[in-house]
Structure formats: structure tokens, C-alpha cells
Simulated assay, not measured.
Amino acid sequence: MFQLLWCPNVHWDPPAPHADVSPVAEIRWRNSADLTRILASPPLPVRQEDPDFGYTPAPCMLTPVPLVDFPYPQTLPDKDLVKAVREYVEATGDGGDVITKVSGIKFGGWRTWHLTDPYDILCLTCGAPCRLLFTVASDDTTAITVGRWGDFRIFAYPAGEGHGYTFDLH
């Protein structure tokens, strides 16, 4: 079981590897068979800033569904494929990053680039490119707002544990 714990307050000078002005988070991997007691009513977080800033998730049910998302078109190796993807985006969306900008919460997949051009997120230990592990994206349906309608992303080193995680607010 993947467990993400985060402080709902803005941290203007967070510890590495957290993004500036983002929640400070901790990841725990647990064996669900080891969980013997579940809190019926978890404690409410203590807020220190404007509650509309968006780091306190509203209670909601998460239902896993298979989802296909695509890499940002400019990162594709084939120019004909880039052209086809751009045509698809124009035909089905508003011309923005509708292919990688998936609302809600997702494991894995491709990262969104709706605010910047693509760049590698590097491991803070060895400098190798990291892979996207988890995204919490702003979404009306789940009543989640991250920062200014952005994404809270967690990246992991692909070769294994021990390198930690890199957190990003995009």
C-alpha cells in the first residue's frame, strides 16, 4: 500500500527534496496485511494559512480506473507522430496540454507540461533522470485544488530504492 502523508500548510522554505511553497510530504510503503486498526475518524489538520490555498483535500472516495495518457508531443521521437498527436489535441481539446493534463490523482504515467517546456527531473543523489511516481492534480470533481490550480508531483529514481523522492509543484 502506498501512503502519502502531507502537511496541509504552505512551507516557504521546505527541506530538500521538496518544492518551494509546497506541502511537505512523506511517503510510506506498507503491507496492507499488516494493518490491523484503521482510524474511523482521522484527526483534522491544523491550518495555518488561507484555507482556499488548496493543500487540504476534501473527503472523497478514490476509485481506481485504468487510464491511458500520453507523453508531451514535443518529447516524441517521430515527427509524423508529433504531428498526429497535435492534430488529435486540436480535434479533441482546447489546444493546451490536454493529453498529459489528467485531472485528479494518478500513479505513474506521463508528467504534464502545462506551465513550462519539458525538462528532466533529476535524482538529488546521483543526477539520473527520475520517473513520475504519483500526481495529485487540481480537479473540480474531487474538490482538490493544489496551489494555484496546479499539480503536486512525486518523482522516484527508476533503478531502485535508497535515492529517495523528488517533490514538485507545477
Rank of each mutant, 00 (worst) to 15 (best):
Met1Ser: 11
Gln3Asn: 05
Leu4Thr: 01
Trp6Tyr: 12
Ala16Ile: 07
Ala16Glu: 12
Ala19Cys: 11
Asp20Gly: 13
Val21Ala: 13
Val21Gly: 09
Val24His: 04
Ile27Gln: 04
Trp29Val: 14
Arg30Asp: 06
Arg30Val: 14
Ser32Asp: 13
Asp34Arg: 08
Thr36Gln: 07
Leu39Asn: 03
Ala40Leu: 05
Ser41Cys: 10
Pro43Arg: 07
Pro45Ser: 10
Gly54Asn: 05
Gly54Gln: 05
Gly54His: 02
Thr56Pro: 00
Pro57Ser: 11
Cys60His: 15
Met61Pro: 02
Leu67Ser: 10
Asp69Phe: 01
Pro73Thr: 00
Thr75His: 00
Leu76Thr: 01
Leu81Asp: 07
Arg86Asn: 15
Glu87Ile: 03
Val89Phe: 04
Glu90Trp: 06
Asp94Ile: 10
Gly95Ala: 10
Gly95Ile: 08
Ile99Glu: 08
Ser103Ala: 15
Ile105Arg: 00
Lys106Thr: 03
Gly108Glu: 03
Gly109Glu: 05
Arg111Cys: 05
Asp117Trp: 06
Ile121Lys: 02
Leu122Ala: 05
Gly127Arg: 07
Gly127Ile: 08
Ala128Phe: 11
Arg131Trp: 01
Leu132Ser: 03
Leu133Ser: 08
Thr135Arg: 14
Ala137Glu: 12
Ser138Ile: 04
Asp139Tyr: 08
Thr141Ala: 13
Thr142Leu: 15
Ala143Glu: 15
Ala143Phe: 07
Val146Gln: 09
Arg153Thr: 12
Ile154Arg: 14
Phe155Ile: 00
Phe155Asn: 01
Phe155Val: 00
Phe155Met: 01
Ala156Met: 13
Ala156Glu: 15
Ala156Cys: 11
Tyr157Met: 09
Tyr157Ile: 08
Ala159Phe: 08
Glu161Tyr: 09
Glu161Gln: 12
Gly164Phe: 02
Leu169Phe: 07
Leu169Pro: 05
